[in-house]
Simulated assay, not measured.
Amino acid sequence: MKRSMKPKISGKNLYKIFGNDPSMALSLLSSGKSKDQIYETTGQAVGVHDVTFTVVEGEIFVVMGLSGSGKSTLVRMINGLIKPSAGEILIDGMDVANCSEEDLRNIRREKVAMVFQHFALFPHKTVAENVAFGLKIRGVKQAERRERAQAALEQVGLGARADSYPDELSGGMQQRVGLARGLASEPEILLMDEPFSALDPLIRSDMQQELLELQRSLRKTIVFITHDLNEALTLGNTIAIMRNGAIVQTGSAEEIVGSPADDYVSAFTRDIDRSLVFKADSIARAPGTIDIGSNDLSSAIARMEQVGADAVHVLDGDRLAGVITYQAANAAFRDGMTLESVVSHDFPTASPQARLFDLYPLAGAGLPIALTDETGRLTGVVRPQDVFRQLAGERE
């Protein structure tokens, strides 16, 4: 399923100055002074510096940066917890930086929920009561609160633990309760501020996969904050990398790792396992094919020479029938054999969304890997040498 390209959240020329005279700091920024120079001169801190971004409906937009980069300030501006010093931030076209208090309350009540790093569960309340707490504050009746809390717990796999208490749950389970609490209000947008960073690595990895599974069915718009690049690459449809309050690069995981914008991003991505980032369609080529019903060995050899390939795939109408290599075709041609007799039906195939990690063993066969869609139709090919070139970080 393709994601919508409709903007859900957007920020334009956002600034946040922490101090008693933001206008002075903004003036110094416009004159080219650095964040450190402004702090030394005025004692004011630049939290966010001229940030512009767009989050499309239904995507996971990950904001990644080290401590002090401005990422948590940015996410708190989205739901109005922090007011920008300058700029606008729109949710469905409404500027939450400059709207009325009533409009802001309605946005928080109807559109946005936040999941924090620390679980902040009430130890004396049951899991279901914790999940339903926000609904209780909003005046939702008890029966409906319980129903919606139970539904949210089912979504995160904790339906059977509704009447347990927080101290009876593991850390991962407690974080799932926090996620269920956000889901219970049925928001359109989830803001997640380093929600998994306090978890053990294995539990953290499990939670990342559970969030991805949940997103496949719920299709929420998620803004996810993290300081961990691997987590960003795992979760993000789009990733924004922040440094010193500014966004230094925005793109997909493949764009961030494959074409880092500067030395700062390059240093982050240097040790990333490229086989887990790049997908087959990122290095796919248009398939060179012949039709078994209208070609012979001579035309098959000519086709391979035309496209500069050691092998081409053979089609039987719309059906992928096999592959033939240049070496086998020439040998068969000399021996007077037919095209059908040398077509190999044992050849590697993969999904266009397969990771290079999954293609690596297939590339060992030396044959082009056929990329096929859900119906089995050939959409592209990946040459073994392109797999190895991408893993090595080489450009053709």
Rank of each mutant, 00 (worst) to 15 (best):
M1W: 14
K6T: 08
N13P: 01
L14C: 01
N20K: 15
L26D: 03
L28Q: 04
K35A: 00
T42I: 02
H49G: 00
T54K: 06
E59S: 08
I60V: 09
V63P: 02
K71M: 06
I82T: 04
I89T: 04
N98Q: 13
S100E: 10
L104S: 01
L104Y: 11
R105T: 11
N106M: 13
K111L: 08
F116P: 02
F116V: 00
T126W: 15
G134Y: 14
L135M: 10
I137M: 11
R148H: 04
A149S: 07
A152D: 05
L153A: 01
Y165R: 11
E168A: 11
A184W: 13
A184R: 12
E186V: 08
I189Q: 10
I189K: 07
M192F: 15
D193R: 07
D206N: 14
S217A: 09
N237T: 12
N244D: 14
E254K: 10
E254M: 11
V257L: 00
R274C: 00
L297V: 02
L297R: 02
S298D: 11
R303V: 04
R303L: 08
E305T: 03
H313A: 02
D318N: 12
R319W: 13
R319Y: 06
L320F: 01
H345L: 09
F347R: 01
P361H: 13
I369E: 02
A370E: 06
T372N: 01
V381C: 02
R395W: 14
